[in-house]
């Protein structure tokens, strides 16, 4: 293809996106669009399956049967999200094995929030309420993103996430209204998860390298700072409602902006965790690598068995 022809295709492509048309797997797309989408969708898929681990840590210790079943179902939903997202990613011409390899080798990233430890039951409430809350704010705009398979996966993901968020808030509410020890658990969890949740919405706009291109392709509709403000404005009244205190002495309502002003985020901590030095980066990755390596013989057996069955069928046909 000549440069001119490519340029022509690119123009048609950009026009389609501008018209809000969906791009489908078999459509022509610029290489950069394909790569960016593989990066983002796979990061998202990896976040779902790494995200199973901190919550999985409390399934066996959930305090009641009702909570145990709900948590188990929630973590299972995350596995389901991982599946849809890996499938969406595979439509861009990359295999699941390659995607896992990128995760296991540390080449691909996942959401840094999952590198924090879950040390009390209240963390299950805080994760649902705050982490899923921030995720929804990030993800709702993706339901109308330009790449068809991703947009459709996100519609399903978002429905389940909002259920998870309510479930998390309900755990926190129950604790906050419970005995003093329970309220203390809830406040402590909020103290530990608040700032990492704000960081989850990404570096400030000035530092964000992908924002401009992503906005053009509708992979992003608002900037990180806008999303963060939206999250804070939505969450502060919820904390007040259940009598918990946001751990930010600089937090106050700004009448003029009709929004909350908030304190300085510790970006050094953010970059430390992103670069692999958070409290649980090693544990999380090790757990995934172990599960994968210990499962090799099982996956091999399934393939070998399927081949044998296929051979048998062929022989019978002859």
């Amino acid at each position: 293809m000549s440069d001119k022809e490519i340029k022509n295709l690119e123009e048609i492509f950009e026009q389609r996106i501008a018209r809000d048309e969906k791009i489908e797997p078999k459509d022509w797309m610029p290489e950069k669009y394909r790569k960016t989408h593989i990066r983002q969708i796979s990061q998202h898929a990896h976040s779902e399956i790494i995200g199973m681990l901190p919550e999985g840590n409390w399934i066996t210790r959930a305090p009641s049967l009702r909570r145990k079943v709900a948590l188990l179902a929630k973590v299972q939903d995350e596995a389901g999200h991982g599946l849809y997202l890996y499938s969406a990613c595979e439509t861009l011409g990359i295999s699941r094995e390659e995607l896992y390899e990128q995760l296991h080798s540390g080449k691909a990233k996942y959401s840094s929030i999952f590198n924090y430890p879950t040390i009390t039951w209240a963390d299950m409430g805080a994760i649902g309420w705050l982490v899923d809350g921030a995720a929804i704010i990030n993800q709702v705009p993706l339901c109308s993103t330009s790449y068809g398979p991703y947009a459709r996966a996100m519609v399903r993901v978002c429905k389940e996430e909002s259920f998870h968020q309510r479930q998390g808030f309900e755990i926190m509410m129950k604790l906050a209204q419970g005995a003093p020890e329970q309220k203390e658990l809830a406040q402590d969890a909020l103290n530990r998860w608040w700032w990492p949740s704000l960081m989850m919405l990404g570096p400030t706009d000035a530092e964000s390298v992908h924002t401009e291109q992503s906005m053009k392709w509708k992979l992003k509709r608002k900037t990180n700072d806008e999303l963060r403000q939206q999250f804070i404005d939505q969450t502060v009244p919820q904390a007040e409602l259940i009598g918990l205190t946001i751990p930010d002495p600089d937090l106050k309502w700004n009448e003029e902006r009709q929004s909350y002003d908030f304190g300085e985020i510790d970006w050094d901590e953010f970059w430390q965790v992103v670069k692999g030095h958070g409290p649980c980066n090693k544990e999380r990755l090790d757990a995934r690598v172990n599960a994968w390596e210990e499962g090799t013989w099982v996956r091999d057996a399934a393939v070998a068995y399927a081949e044998k069955q296929e051979e048998k069928k062929l022989k019978q046909a002859i």
């Binding site: 399956i49 199973m52 681990l53 999985g56 399934i59 066996t60 145990k68 079943v69 188990l72 179902a73 973590v75 299972q76 596995a79 389901g80 991982g82 599946l83 890996y86 757990a287 172990n290 599960a291 994968w292 210990e294 499962g295 090799t296 099982v298 996956r299």
Partner: peptide
């Protein structure tokens, strides 16, 4: 079975094992 949630040999068996636990 719920101890295994998130640690299965692949996502499909992980989900199936969790279903049985549920």
């Amino acid at each position: 079975l719920s101890e295994l949630c998130g640690h299965g040999p692949n996502l499909e068996t992980d989900i199936a094992g969790t279903n049985i636990a549920l």
